[in-house]
Write a protein that binds this DNA or RNA. Structure first.
Length: 891
RNA sequence: GCGGGCGUGGCGGAAUUGGUAGACGCAGCGGACUCAAAAUCCGCCGUCGAAAGACAUGUCGGUUCGAGUCCGACCGCCCGCACCA
């Protein structure tokens, strides 16, 4: 069918000189419109299928950084896309607002933590709003809001009642800079995760959450988290650290000073190596060591030395295996005539297993080092499968692999696995008194979560200490236990301890004078359930279980890999604790997890080499000549060195302020750029050139639509089925399908590439339609393509999309428009072009009907001139045809 | 030490998961428009070669009609955990 040219009504040459898109004017305008229409407020009663997308909420440190921009841009694309796809989307935002920096600011700048925090929230909220994120701000809260921590205190009491909270005296990691206790997870390389100070060990009475109650469950459920990165699951698995072994009891011989004990219980994962035992070793903090210390000054001194040894990486690597004989002798469990010495050793940890081990030097490097130092026997008991029993020996390297048992009496010739089972059965069946000599035991590396912090700016632990009644929970009707405002920060330590009146309170049970608990909760508690609170933040109770169950789990959670263990493991535990206390029915909080990469930037240094001072990218200009990039100071023209690409940090001054970018290019450019190029899980390199590229794209899209808008108005969008316009419709619909898939897989960099391709292919038609009369069907197809383009780019550059959408004459918002549906007929190719290989080397191309049968393909292939030349008269042995893919001729 | 990941142009990265390696972007080069610049538009852009073609996905080998993709060994980076018995 030939399309008859239709007269153009809206043809206007003057419109050709289109002005540039001005995001500074347009972005706030659309944001206001979204607000006014409450486009992003979510109704819990909406019957459509739910989708909960959440980005890790920020700590209100002062200003947002590029990491936030990336995180929230990623989440916003998902939220907008899912909304368009018809889901009832929950996309809330809040503030992880308790924590040390507020107290540091109070100390340094004489500003109250509350004032500082809420001011920061205000600033950052403004910044986030400028990004045009599709957030439901009506559900916003900060964890330092009394309303929030009130419910956290309720949860604490419920957990206490369920026995999930307890108090014990324990050795704790003490951060001498922050003056507080740290959980094991918060100690990195022997240093505080926040302060970086070397951590000391102190004995304190602490509150603990019984996370170990769920060790096995937390481990098992990792397998169900299919939409989590494998890496994170593995990290958690290792952290939980399950091992299968045995507890074995070693009788202390009557001849030795037993200090009231009759046995030493060790934990081992290698009972098979029992005949290779040559000593026992206990930790310096082992109860037996403490008893011996009372009467033995040498042991006491040695234990003291062990306690003070550094736990840093360097200290551990160089630390010599050291020990001291306690004089205690024990009997081998399988041979009562065999006696071994018990040492105190510096490499035995009190908080793993039982704090006591048996040393098998041939099978463990540490034991071997120790045995060599103290001239203890080294008897090889396991030999690799292909080893020679006559020559196998252990020198300076222990053999800790599997293999065949040797020198092990009745175990000789068995495999290590068989030997394990034989020993386990034997020891479980042999009694000492009325206790078996040994028992199988699963052990976990995971410890209970110590949550006490000796800080002011945190959620108060709602208990009261009474001299008569002991620990008394604050009755629920007396909650919240509010933080007092009148506190001082001029001295180190916990301001709550120093408060003149706050801690004094009557005991709820007996009415006598009693004292409030002055410890506050670890801020990781706050972030362990905020996603649940978002489902109904107005509730009196911590949750509305029906509502929470409907929204949870979070379908897509997005944040940094740095939370792979701490926050994500705590949240998994806390959700289970809330399940046990009846607040939710779900078990796993996050169905899908995505860990994004960092935003990194080149560094610049002025002056000589490694000692030069860091220079901000804002203070330099880059020159490029002869393929070399050089940087110069803007101020005095001095050359500065271009350094490595690093995570943006204040100390290296390679920070780009999102405000500056939004001010000069607009939010859409910033969003589009952080989504381009790099896959979201990898680091993205921030560069001026890259941002300008993204900005060029926004301008180009605007210009193309603006120019063509009049020519495309007044007609109904419709894809073409034939003629010149067919290619346009095909390109649009194929891109639509592909980009939808990319969004589903969070492959935003690929979506960006495909959108560029579509814009490139629509550029000429859009220019053409603006300049010359075109048929109505052509314009209808082009309008359809342009609308698809605008809609698929909308999740990334929402303001620009609204602007373009309006230019095409739409009164409705893109944000309210359902996702377009692609036409399969247009996505399908009628003809396919297949490469033709001869012996695996490409020699020709064959274009043929998509549904041509095998024979037709072979005939057409052999008829190709290029093929005949390549074959050069040789006969083919066979021809491989992969339909619609490739033809390979084998000669 | 244990565990995991990655290696593709000058750069960021694509490659329908075994089927045309280098999509798209950045940078660069050439051209058009302009008095000029910016902006914009068009073209080129892995290496060698005049071309035909050859060589190219860290290195070496293997499987296959066909390997960036699968297998083995090695080299090099990155991340996590770490005296866990």
């Amino acid at each position: 069918m030939k399309v008859s040219p239709t007269p153009l009504i809206f043809w206007n040459v003057k419109k050709m000189a289109t002005e540039r898109y001005n995001p500074r004017e347009a972005e706030p305008r659309w944001q206001e419109k979204w607000n006014a229409e409450k486009v992003f407020e979510t109704d819990n009663g909406d019957p459509r299928e739910k989708y909960y997308v959440l980005e890790m909420f920020p700590y209100p440190s002062g200003r947002i950084h590029m990491g936030h921009v990336r995180n929230y841009s990623l989440g916003d694309v998902v939220a907008r896309y899912k909304r368009a796809r018809g889901f009832n989307v929950l996309h809330p935002m809040g503030w992880d607002a308790f924590g040390m920096p507020a107290e540091n600011a109070a100390r340094d700048n004489k500003v109250h933590p509350k004032t500082w925090t809420y001011q920061n929230i205000e600033t950052m909220k403004k910044q986030l709003k400028a990004m045009g994120l599709s957030l439901d701000w009506s559900r916003e809260f900060a964890t330092c809001d009394v309303d929030y921590y009130h419910r956290q205190q309720m949860l604490f009491l419920d957990m206490m009642e369920k026995g999930l909270v307890y108090r014990k005296e324990s050795k704790v990691n003490w951060d001498p800079v922050d003056n507080t206790v740290l959980a094991n997870e918060q100690v990195i390389d022997g240093r505080g995760w926040r302060s970086g100070a070397l951590v000391e060990q102190r004995e304190l009475t602490q509150w603990f959450f019984k996370i170990t109650e769920f060790s096995q469950e937390l481990l098992d459920a990792l397998d169900t988290l299919e939409d989590w990165p494998e890496k994170v699951r593995l990290m958690q698995k290792n952290w939980i650290g399950r091992s299968e072994g045995m507890l074995i009891r070693w009788e202390i011989t009557p001849q030795t000073p037993a200090h009231g004990e009759s046995e030493v219980v060790v934990y081992t994962t290698r009972p098979d190596t029992l005949f290779g035992a040559s000593f026992l070793a206990i930790a310096a903090d082992h109860p037996l060591a403490k008893k011996i210390s009372e009467t033995n000054p040498a042991i006491d001194a040695f234990c003291e030395e062990c306690r003070h040894a550094g736990t840093s990486l360097a200290a551990l690597e160089t630390a010599e295996k050291k020990g001291m004989d306690t004089g205690i002798r024990v009997r081998h469990p399988l041979d009562s005539s065999w006696e071994l010495s018990v040492y105190v050793a510096n490499f035995v940890l009190m908080d793993y297993g039982t704090g006591a081990i048996f040393g098998c030097p041939a099978g463990d490097q540490r034991d071997l080092d120790f045995a060599r130092k103290y001239n203890l026997p080294v008897v090889p008991v396991v030999m690799p499968k292909d080893g020679d029993p006559d020559t196998f020996s252990v020198g300076d390297v222990a053999y800790d692999g599997d293999g065949v048992m040797i020198n092990s009496r009745f175990l000789n010739g068995k495999t290590t696995t068989e030997a394990f089972e034989i020993i386990a059965d034997k020891l479980s069946g042999t009694m000492i008194g009325n206790m078996p000599q040994g028992e199988r035991k699963v052990n976990f590396r995971l410890r209970d979560w110590g949550i006490s912090r000796q800080r002011y700016w945190g959620c108060p632990i709602p208990v009261i200490h009474c001299d008569s009644c002991g620990i008394v929970p604050v009755p629920k009707q007396d909650l919240p236990v509010k933080l007092p405002d009148d506190v001082t920060f001029d001295q180190p330590g916990n301001p709550l301890d120093r408060h003149p009146t706050w801690r004094h309170v009557a005991c709820p049970q007996c009415g006598q004078d009693a004292r409030r608990e002055t410890d506050t909760m670890d801020t990781f508690v706050d972030s362990s359930w905020y996603f649940t609170r978002f489902t109904a933040p107005w509730e009196e109770q911590p949750t509305n279980p029906a509502v929470a169950n409907r929204w949870l789990p979070v379908d897509q959670y997005i944040g940094g890999i740095e939370h792979a263990i701490l926050h994500l493991l705590y949240s998994r535990f806390y959700t289970r604790a809330m399940r046990e206390t009846g607040h939710v029915d779900v078990t796993e909080p996050f169905k899908g997890l995505f860990t994004q990469g960092m935003v990194v930037h080149e560094t610049y240094r002025r002056g000589s080499g490694q000692n030069g001072e860091w220079v901000s990218p804002a203070d330099i200009r880059i020159e490029e000549a002869d393929g070399k990039r050089r940087a110069f100071m803007l101020s005095d023209g001095d050359e500065v060195l271009i350094g490595s690409i690093e995570k943006m940090s204040k100390s290296k001054k390679n920070v780009i302020d999102p405000d500056d970018i939004i001010a000069s290019y607009g939010a859409d450019t910033a969003r589009f750029f952080v989504l381009s190029d790099s896959p979201p899980e990898r680091d993205v390199i921030w560069s001026e050139a890259g941002v300008e590229g993204a900005h060029r794209f926004t301008q180009r899209l605007y210009r193309l639509i603006a120019e063509a808008a009049e020519a495309l108005s007044g007609i109904v969008a419709a894809p073409a089925s034939e003629g010149e316009a067919l290619a346009i419709s095909q390109a649009a619909h194929r891109t639509l399908k592909a980009v939808s898939q990319d969004y589903d897989r969070l492959a935003f960099n690929k979506a960006v590439a495909r959108i560029y391709e579509l814009v490139n292919s629509l550029a000429a038609p859009l220019t053409k339609v603006a300049k010359e009369p075109c048929s109505e069907s052509y314009r209808a197809a082009l309008r359809n393509a342009a609308e698809i383009l605008i809609q698929i780019v909308a999740p990334m550059t929402p303001h620009l999309a609204e602007e373009c959408w309006a230019m095409l004459g739409h009164k409705e918002l893109v944000a309210h428009t359902p996702w377009p549906v692609h036409d399969d007929a247009l996505v399908q190719e009628n003809d396919v072009t297949m490469p033709v290989q001869v012996n695996g080397k490409k020699r020709a191309e064959l274009t043929i009907s998509r549904d041509a049968d095998q024979n037709a393909v072979i005939q057409a292939t052999l008829a190709l001139e290029d093929v005949q030349r390549a074959l050069n008269g040789q006969a083919h042995k066979k021809i491989i045809v992969v339909p619609q893919r490739i033809v390979n001729i084998v000669v």
